[in-house]
Design a protein around this nucleic acid. Structure first.
Length: 274
DNA sequence: GGGTGATGCTGAG
DNA sequence: TCAGCCTCACCCC
């Protein structure tokens, strides 16, 4: 579930259904009991997303920091009364009309301003946050220039760019025709700029659609994005050995930064992007 | 019912 | 570099 587009979507959704309300909070699992007791009955004032991190701002000045990690998941229930949370539910927020349940997060903690600032300092520019695109592109380019690791690994490093995950890194490199093995500091300014723009475009579409679709419909003989079926939405991710949608070359797979990465050796030839 | 993998990240070595 | 952590859906028996 959770690459940056999902996180920003959650922030918007939770703001929409809970902000301005007095919220009842609890930790059925018990691992966040102290925090849940502190927040219980407070007004949720705002919800911010930065990369893959969520910040919930409460009436008495407290901030809840949530990071879903690989397994974390929010569920939103509109039924009255909401269903009983499962025993593993870390945290629940119940407002006037909805209940939001959180299970399996890597992080669910209260943070003070200094701690929050430290988290943000570790994050690179987030294409989905407001702010000057030119400034963020310059930061991204500078971050790349300082790293000798392959660009495929750099894109997963949240200090370089915040919000991309394993699906987007493979798809963005395919769409820009860049060799995933190319050292980040050897990328041309033009290639870096295309990577940034492509990342921003795909993340924005993902936030809008609620799913990751990177394929141009014409490449699979469809007219509209919405006509793509489940198996046609991505170019290379998890398509080992299947024909490239543009040139027919079998898609390759290898490990990079501890995760599998997929690419097309014809559309992303060795050295492309330098 | 058991085994496994997953869109993430950290900390020990 | 690699094990470890978190939960759940899905697959296979």
């Amino acid at each position: 579930m959770p690459e940056g587009h999902t996180i920003h979507r959650l922030a918007r959704k939770h703001r929409e259904v809970l902000a301005g309300q007095t919220v009842a909070t609890a930790s059925p699992q018990g691992r966040f009991s102290t925090g849940a007791r502190r927040l219980d009955g407070q007004t949720l004032e705002a919800v911010d997303a930065h990369g893959k991190h969520l910040f919930y701002r409460w009436g008495r000045g407290e901030t809840l920091h949530v990071h879903l990690g690989l397994f974390g998941r929010f569920r939103l229930h509109r039924s009255q009364p909401p269903p009983d949370p499962t025993p593993n539910t870390r945290f629940t927020m119940t407002g006037d009309e909805v209940a939001v349940y959180l299970a399996g997060p890597t992080v669910c903690e209260l943070v003070d301003p200094a701690e929050e600032a430290a988290i943000l300092r570790r994050l690179g520019p987030d294409p989905l946050r407001a702010g000057s695109g030119a400034v963020k592109l310059a930061q991204f380019t500078a971050n790349l220039s300082r790293r000798r690791i392959p660009i495929g690994a750099a894109l997963l490093d949240q200090r370089v760019i915040a919000g991309l995950g394993n699906i987007y890194r493979a798809e963005v490199l395919f769409r820009t025709g860049i060799d995933a093995q190319l050292p980040a500091n050897r990328l041309s300014a033009d290639a870096a700029s295309r990577l940034w723009t492509e990342s921003a475009t795909l993340l924005r579409q993902g936030r809008r659609d609620g799913r990751i679709i990177t394929v141009d419909p014409a490449d699979v003989g469809a007219r509209r994005r919405r006509d793509l079926d489940r198996t046609e939405r991505l170019y290379v991710y998890k398509r080992t050995g299947e024909p490239c949608r543009r040139c027919g070359t079998p898609v390759s797979m290898t490990e990079m930064a501890n995760r599998s990465i997929w690419w097309c050796s014809s559309c992303q030839p060795k050295g492309a992007g330098s």
